[in-house]
Design a protein around this nucleic acid. Sequence first.
DNA 1: GCTTGAACCTCAAGTGGCTTGAGGGCGTAG
DNA 2: CTACGCCCTCAAGCCACTTGAGGTTCAAGC
Lengths: 133, 133
Amino acid sequence: MRIGVLAKATGVSVPTIRYYESIGLLTPPARQGGQRVYGSEDVKVLSLIRHCRDLDFSLDAISDILASVQRRLPCSDTKVFAEQHLRSIRKKIAELRTLETTVAGLVSGCETTCCGSTAPDCVILQPSQACCG
Amino acid sequence: MRIGVLAKATGVSVPTIRYYESIGLLTPPARQGGQRVYGSEDVKVLSLIRHCRDLDFSLDAISDILASVQRRLPCSDTKVFAEQHLRSIRKKIAELRTLETTVAGLVSGCETTCCGSTAPDCVILQPSQACCG
DNA sequence: GCTTGAACCTCAAGTGGCTTGAGGGCGTAG
DNA sequence: CTACGCCCTCAAGCCACTTGAGGTTCAAGC
């Protein structure tokens, strides 16, 4: 199978497949007339990569995951990767929630206190919680 | 004031200040003996940029915000920027929550169904919701 | 056998928001 | 006059790709 077929089979774009090969995430396949030729194993590996990217694992983490798959390490290792990832997702959510609260507070502060003043005096743009009052 | 003093006054690193100048976010200051010399207005502008970065506005958005400040446009413009930003924050939170649910489900699925199998068969790494059953 | 068009190839640069490093110049205190 | 800290420019690195230029190979139709 050629690269375009592999791309359709896995949902990974052709340039991305070549990119994965260039960084060593995929092993370079055989060539026929200069063109890459893939087998069914490549579909499995690339589908796994795609699945992990859908879960937003980094390519570095995916590299580790692939290694643990190829070595048939115990499932617990996989779970550790997923738990680490889950922690970083939760941390990011917490950060964004704080940010959401802050920005939402500024927007409503602008509505109640700015009373149609100009941008330089807007509550939203004040370094601390100073007001345009 | 030299760049190091400006950096300390605003909490923005020296290379970052030079970077902001290079992309046109800060106007190039006067020079003395080849070295940048800043005034109090620069502290104000850079502090505003810092504040907006703390709120996670993109540099593109900050560029627009600075323009609205310099033109003394009405506060409502600022609020529009903040509201757009708030929407994108909320969208991102929603995406991350979905991801959190998915990954958390996979981790607990691994705990209950994988029963110590190997990585290639782990629930976490299966493309669909197939199990190692 | 020849042409056409799709799919393939490599290499380089762009995205965002910086950071880091190399290799050198300026300013001031002792 | 030397030492040290601060300053300068330019280039490359980070992440995960995407986009583009310019050229080659393959399969189908005539």
